[in-house]
């Protein structure tokens, strides 16, 4: 998806080391509005670190990140906090707040951010629960929901902030196989509605169906980037080919 418009998020030359290990070794990437970017790669390749740099959960040692063309003060937690309202994230372990019901999980952040008043937030939350097909679970506590249901509530919770982009960090990796489909279906439907997303995943079927662009990472570097057809069928780099073959 080439565009002369400013990318929504642009990361340049990110370096992040944990001790002696370089999780990110000079990584650059840009995401345009409406783009669906999928990141694949072996464990330890830096995919999670990269995606967490995009909402400031991990702060790179060096590099630049710009949101809608404006550079972010990387060490400023306050700056990141304001940005996080526009960058939503869904985690591998869903991390719903166990002491709150589904609907309370969803309304907490929007109300605290003064995005909307409580009654309005609850209406919106119910609408989102319908969207993820869990309307009847509004008053349920996470402990009484299945993994797939919890993940869908987590997605609704991220959507409640009306983000411009959604980051997914291996959203189905911790799910039992029979629940993966319901979450992937939801993500496909969100993509069809035009949501900009960056998805770190091992689900190649999803990547092929939804991705506009795929990044293959290994050892903290982007080895190859391109449309799904290239990455899955016509690799330019032998490492990419080996990885795809291994997980096919």
């Amino acid at each position: 998806m080439q565009s002369s418009v400013t990318p929504l998020i642009e990361a340049q030359n990110l370096v992040k080391a944990f001790g002696r290990i370089r999780a990110l070794d000079d990584v650059s990437c840009a995401i345009s509005t409406g783009e669906r970017l999928v990141v694949i790669g072996p464990s330890g390749s830096g995919k999670s670190t990269l995606i967490r740099c995009l909402n400031g959960l991990v702060k790179p040692d060096t590099g630049k990140i710009a949101f809608e063309g404006r550079h972010i003060e990387l060490t400023s937690e306050a700056h990141w906090r304001r940005l996080r309202q526009r960058v939503g994230m869904v985690f591998q372990d869903y991390t719903l707040f166990p002491h709150l019901t589904a609907i309370e999980n969803i309304t907490l952040a929007p109300v605290r951010a003064s995005l909307m008043a409580k009654p309005q937030a609850e209406l919106e939350a119910r609408r989102l629960l319908e969207r993820v097909q869990l309307a009847e679970k509004a008053a349920s506590y996470p402990a009484f929901l299945s993994g797939g249901q919890q993940q869908r509530v987590a997605i609704a919770r991220a959507l409640a902030m009306r983000p411009q982009i959604l980051l997914f960090d291996e959203p189905t990796s911790a799910l039992d196989p029979e629940m993966i489909k319901e979450v992937l279906d939801l993500m496909v439907s969100l993509a069809r509605d035009g949501m900009t997303m960056v998805v770190v995943t091992h689900e190649m079927g999803f990547a092929r169906a939804v991705a506009d662009r795929v990044l293959f990472m290994e050892a903290g570097r982007i080895v190859e980037a391109g449309p799904p057809d290239q990455i899955f069928a016509n690799q330019k780099d032998v490492r990419t080919r080996e990885f795809v073959r291994r997980i096919a």
Partner: peptide, 17 residues
Amino acid sequence: KTGHSAVAAPRGFKESA
């Protein structure tokens, strides 16, 4: 009763960089 006991980490959860 109100679910305050911490939700156990889901099965198969793994940390990847």
